[in-house]
């Protein structure tokens, strides 16, 4: 019974990872790609490591998995934010305008 839950969580996580990959390949500019990156990677890591946590139970390996989930959930949106801010000044987005002129002064 528990194994079925583990497998369902694991492959749901892999599915979200694949959606993120397809999004990065398909979407037109950096900011749209960041949408796919931050959201689906955060949930994908949470589901894959969460399934392993369910498989393992609360042991020394389980505690390490919990720390990895917490770190990724904090660091992934922050990394996305800082890439977006670094791109905002210089990047021409998919309509051909400079992103900065579209959004006003920073």
């Amino acid at each position: 019974m528990r194994e079925i839950f583990v497998l369902v969580l694991l492959f749901t996580g892999v599915f979200f990872f694949s959606v993120g990959t397809i999004g990065v390949l398909r979407l037109p500019d950096v900011f749209c790609r960041l949408h796919a990156n931050t959201k689906s990677d955060t949930l994908g890591v949470g589901l894959v490591l969460g399934s392993l946590l369910l498989y393992e139970g609360l042991s020394s390996a389980g505690v390490k998995l919990i720390f990895m989930i917490i770190f990724i959930w904090i660091t992934n949106p922050t990394a996305g934010h800082i890439i977006a801010r670094a791109s905002y000044d210089t990047i021409v987005d998919w309509t051909g305008q400079l992103a900065r002129q579209k959004g006003g002064e920073k």
Binding site: H35, K39, S40
Partner: peptide
Amino acid sequence: IIKANIQVVQIVLSPKLKINPQFVE
């Protein structure tokens, strides 16, 4: 987050990209 992911799945897997990106302050 789960809601956001379902929405990303809808946008990415639809055959025609229905997006209109904008910057708002």
